[in-house]
Amino acid sequence: MTLSCDIKYFSLVCIQKSWYFNLDPSRVITNGLCGEDTAVLFLTLPGYAASLQFTFKKGATLDFYVTDLAAHLSPRPVCLGCANKTYSGSITHDKLFAAGDGQSFKCSSVSLLSTSSELRIKLVRLQVQAFRVPTFLYGQEVDCWTDFYKELIPIIIGATVLTLVLTALLTFLLIKDRHRTGYVRI
Rank of each mutant, 00 (worst) to 15 (best):
D37E: 12
T55F: 10
D6K: 14
F56N: 02
D6Y: 00
F54Y: 14
L73H: 09
T44R: 07
Q127P: 03
P154Y: 04
S74P: 01
R27M: 10
P77T: 05
F21W: 10
I15M: 05
D24S: 12
C34L: 02
W19R: 07
Q127N: 11
L152G: 00
C14S: 12
V66Y: 10
D101W: 15
T67Q: 14
F148H: 06
Q16A: 03
I91C: 14
L113N: 08
A49S: 14
G81L: 08
L174E: 12
A83M: 12
G81S: 10
F131T: 02
D63K: 08
K57Q: 12
Y87L: 09
N31W: 06
R125H: 15
R76M: 11
V128H: 06
K176Q: 09
S51I: 03
E36V: 07
S114V: 12
G81P: 09
F10E: 02
S51N: 06
L52Y: 04
D143G: 01
P134I: 04
T86V: 15
S114R: 15
S108L: 15
F56D: 06
C34H: 00
S90Q: 15
K8M: 11
T44G: 06
Y20L: 11
F172K: 09
L73R: 05
T181E: 09
G139W: 01
Q53I: 12
D143C: 06
L113R: 04
N22S: 10
G100S: 13
V133E: 01
L62R: 11
I15E: 08
G102E: 02
G32W: 04
F21M: 01
V165E: 08
L73S: 08
Y9H: 13
V124A: 12
A99N: 04
L23N: 02
Q16V: 01
F56V: 10
A168M: 13
A168V: 09
Y183C: 02
A70Y: 04
T167C: 12
K106C: 13
I29K: 00
L170A: 11
I15F: 02
R125P: 00
V28C: 06
C34N: 04
Q103W: 15
R76N: 12
L164N: 07
F42S: 04
Q129G: 04
L3C: 01
T86H: 04
C79S: 14
P154G: 05
C5M: 02
L80Y: 08
S109C: 14
T86N: 09
I7K: 00
N22W: 01
T163K: 14
I29N: 03
L23E: 08
F56L: 07
I156R: 12
D147L: 03
L45R: 05
C14N: 05
E118K: 03
E141G: 00
A39Y: 01
H72C: 11
E141V: 07
L43A: 03
F54C: 05
D24E: 10
W145I: 05
V13D: 09
C107L: 15
L162G: 08
G89E: 08
L119E: 04
L112F: 13
T160Y: 10
R76F: 02
L41Q: 10
L112C: 14
L164D: 00
P25Y: 05
D68C: 07
A70N: 09
